[in-house]
Amino acid sequence: MLSYQHLYHAGNLADVHKHAALSWVLSYMTRKDKPLTYVETHGGRGLYDLSAPEAVKTAEAAAGIEAVAAWFEGTAYEDVLAACRADHGDRAYPGSPWIASHLLRGDDVLHIAELHPQEHDALLDNVPAAYIHHQDGFDMAYSVCPPIPRRGLLVVDPSYEVKDEYLEVPKHLIKLAKSWPVGVMILWYPLLTDDRHRPMVRTLSRAFPDALRHEVGFPPAREGHRMVGSGLFVVNPPWGLDEMLGTLATRFKSL
């Protein structure tokens, strides 16, 4: 969706959920001295300034990472946040491409797609170590999967501004999993007040009965805001991820 710009929402509680999980997964996967491939279908600009007017206007970061940063003391996510701020200033916030580029190593490979022209150009500057693709994210994923190295991770994080995405995402994940059966696949989805995610999740659960599904609820960022939670659907989840997410869920229940 070319009208979507994540700067308005960067650092919100949904970002906290998915980025804490992503930081843990990448830290876990890089413990093994074998290269891996990171593929992301909807990269955004990769790095955000929480003092920008767009971020201040919605105040989602104020209710998000700025309110709950203390939850992550001693974790990989805290290390990522600290490194990003050390490099880019105290109000910098790392998107998933920046997190991946920071945590991955010199022999790992990153493929990131972004279709929005301005976001794509910013991503080129913010994540120079990656292969940045100016094309549809799923088209890019099909072109590189199964990747070399075969070991790796696919991240799918659409805007969901088009309702058809809820129907199309399962089709893409099922097809990609057939071509890359050993890949870890993380899908993020919003929990909205109309529960439109439920048919998508049912389809995915039938296709991937051993996948990990994790959802957290939280107060809306402002009156009338329809997002009241965040979901992750993980195919081939690394060992220990369910425990980490369970601890995080306890934190969210305190909100």
Rank of each mutant, 00 (worst) to 15 (best):
L187R: 13
F233Y: 03
D49G: 12
L115E: 01
F72S: 10
H225T: 07
W188R: 12
Y77A: 02
Y77M: 02
S27L: 05
G224C: 12
T247H: 07
V201R: 14
K171Q: 07
L173R: 02
L154R: 04
Y48Q: 11
L176M: 09
A82R: 04
T250H: 04
V182C: 02
A10N: 06
D108S: 08
H120Q: 14
N236F: 01
R151N: 07
L36F: 06
P209S: 04
V144N: 12
L104H: 08
D15K: 04
K171A: 09
R45H: 05
L154D: 09
A59L: 06
R251D: 09
H102L: 08
D108L: 05
A61P: 09
D121R: 15
Y28V: 14
W239H: 09
P147F: 01
V68M: 01
M185Q: 13
H19E: 08
P181A: 03
L47G: 14
E243A: 07
M29W: 03
V182Q: 11
L232G: 02
L245P: 09
P149I: 12
G231D: 03
I174S: 03
Y142I: 04
Y131S: 15
H134T: 14
L103S: 04
M140K: 13
R196F: 11
D15N: 03
K18N: 06
E168V: 03
S230E: 01
H225N: 13
Y28A: 13
A86L: 12
H42I: 01
M140D: 14
E73A: 15
L2T: 05
I99A: 02
Y93D: 12
D242P: 04
W180D: 05
H88P: 04
L104S: 03
V156C: 12
A14C: 08
Y131M: 14
G183T: 08
G229Q: 01
V169W: 00
F218Y: 15
I148L: 06
A70S: 14
G89E: 04
A249K: 11
